[in-house]
Simulated assay, not measured.
Amino acid sequence: MEGLTVKRAYHQHCGLAAAMDVLGERWTLLLVRELLLGPRRYSELLADLPGLGTNLLADRLRFLVARGVVRQCGVGSAQRYAYELTDTGHGLRPVLLELTRWGLFRPELSTVDTVRPRWAFLAVEALAAGRHAEVDEDYEFRVDGEVFHLSVRAGRAHGGLGPAQPPSVVATTDAGTLLVVCAQPTALTEATHAGRLELTGTDSAVRRCTALLTPS
């Protein structure tokens, strides 16, 4: 593709090396993360990836489009251009969820860390996806004014944008609190007692929801 920056390659006949040839550059996996919940416009990606300059974002998008991980699409009534994951790109979802779950070891947020509602909800999905619980429910998360839903069916969890239909539990909180809850076993109880996390639903549904959210 004309204008595409040539990336470094490992030149190893190995599946992992081939994956790293595509995904190993800085910002690439975080860009894929931003598209997990649906299409996003260029300006939205730039705003939610602080520290990533516009030229580098354009370069990463061109590269991922060329490799079949991302494609352009039209969104809204005006069909404004946006980017979305291809089926190949969506195949990275379990990998990113497992990496997210693995990375939930930080005890608290740093004062210099940026946090977004989507990132906090991704931590929720990552925890729930690893539980393999026999739960058949939908949960709604209202995080800093943004709404997400988590559907759990026979040990599989899948998250998305928008409200649950209908929710067994509604969780209302902020992104920073939700990330800490997903990282610390005792944080959920502390957050609910302090009023930073509100869980609305029947007692039994709340217990099932909190079991999915509490890290082991």
Results as ranks from 00 to 15, higher is better:
1 M>Y: 13
6 V>D: 10
7 K>M: 09
7 K>L: 09
8 R>W: 15
10 Y>Q: 13
12 Q>N: 05
14 C>K: 01
19 A>E: 14
39 P>E: 01
47 A>R: 15
48 D>F: 06
48 D>I: 04
50 P>Q: 12
57 L>C: 04
60 R>V: 07
64 L>Q: 11
64 L>I: 03
65 V>F: 06
68 G>P: 04
69 V>F: 09
71 R>V: 03
71 R>T: 09
75 V>A: 02
81 Y>S: 04
81 Y>Q: 03
89 G>C: 06
91 G>H: 01
91 G>Q: 02
91 G>W: 04
92 L>N: 04
92 L>F: 07
93 R>Q: 07
94 P>N: 02
95 V>K: 00
95 V>Q: 00
96 L>R: 01
101 R>L: 05
104 L>G: 10
111 T>W: 14
112 V>Q: 11
115 V>E: 15
116 R>Y: 11
116 R>L: 09
117 P>Y: 09
120 A>S: 12
120 A>C: 08
122 L>V: 10
123 A>I: 03
125 E>A: 04
128 A>M: 06
128 A>R: 01
130 G>K: 07
140 E>F: 10
147 V>L: 07
149 H>I: 05
150 L>K: 03
151 S>W: 08
156 R>A: 03
158 H>T: 11
161 L>N: 05
164 A>W: 03
169 V>G: 13
177 T>N: 02
178 L>W: 09
195 G>V: 03
197 L>Q: 09
203 D>A: 08
204 S>R: 14
205 A>Q: 02
213 L>K: 02
214 T>S: 10
